[in-house]
Design a protein around this nucleic acid. Structure first.
Lengths: 146, 146
DNA sequence: CTACTTGCAAAGTGTTTGCAGTTGA
DNA sequence: TCAACTGCAAACACTTTGCAAGTAG
């Protein structure tokens, strides 16, 4: 066994990723990518558009939507439809997780449970299905201290 | 302990329910109610509108939407947003259950798991929240027989 | 009778798309 | 260079709403 280079960084370099997919790195895309990298939350398209506009006022909302779709198709981000509002996006670095949405503030807390995952797989199997994807959202409100 | 009347029928009478809420039973409402009672599935507004039109061609899509909202607010039906398409509705008789959606046919299979419910409550508690509602959807495809 | 409902058309959201001009590789 | 990309405005799908006419109780 020989020494080798350290494992790749946990956060992929989207620009490189895109370029390798034969996609051009344009100004609007670089701007949006920068925003996604800097913002840890679950913003919607309008939110991203607002931040992008602050950096480059020429950016259009269409381009935001087109870029989000592009990134989603590449697997670089996930799209969520919490409640019924607009789609909200999240970078797809880490592992799978589910969401708890604070119905009062809209805040999103991420969590994951191997046991729930396992139960879902089991249930799907019993029903004769293979899981392609799933969505688990808990809507709650902060517990008042007694 | 005295003998008493048998438990109420499992399927509530929506007309009575509505009347008791001070809501008028109009022709369109009666038609829609009839369709919901007869159809066991998870139809969307357009689907309900189509079936209603067959019974009473004068019904408008707006009235379908207004009626679904009314019933939802009364707790008589649940509204779901599977994938990203239109809202789909389901009568709220029985117990709580979750959904497995066949991504190829759109078919919806209902299931419920006390263990998953319990795990969710536990997770929410650990995060400091009380659950208000939740949504668990499994998207899958029928397993091919080997 | 008259307040609640309706149908219709118009408005509203969130998102996608056609097109002519722009730009990255 | 020149296909990929963009901004813009128009189109879209789904849903809600204003209003004048209709109707249940």
């Amino acid at each position: 066994m020989t020494r080798s280079a350290p494992p790749p960084p946990e956060k992929p370099d989207y620009e490189t990723l895109l370029r390798e997919s034969g996609v051009r790195i344009t100004r609007p895309r670089r701007t949006i990518l920068g925003i996604l990298a800097a913002q840890p939350g679950h913003p919607d398209a309008l939110e991203i558009f607002r931040r992008a506009s602050a950096v480059d006022p020429a950016i259009s909302l269409s381009t935001v939507y087109r870029t989000m779709r592009l990134l989603e198709e590449m697997g670089a981000i996930h799209r969520h439809a919490f409640g019924d509002g607009p789609s909200r996006f999240e970078t797809a670095d880490g592992d799978h997780h589910d969401h708890l949405i604070d119905i009062e503030s809209g805040e999103v807390v991420e969590f994951s449970s191997e046991r729930i995952e396992a139960l879902q797989t089991e249930i799907a199997r019993e029903l004769g299905y293979d899981i392609v994807s799933h969505r688990l959202e808990i809507y709650g409100r902060k517990r008042r201290p007694a």
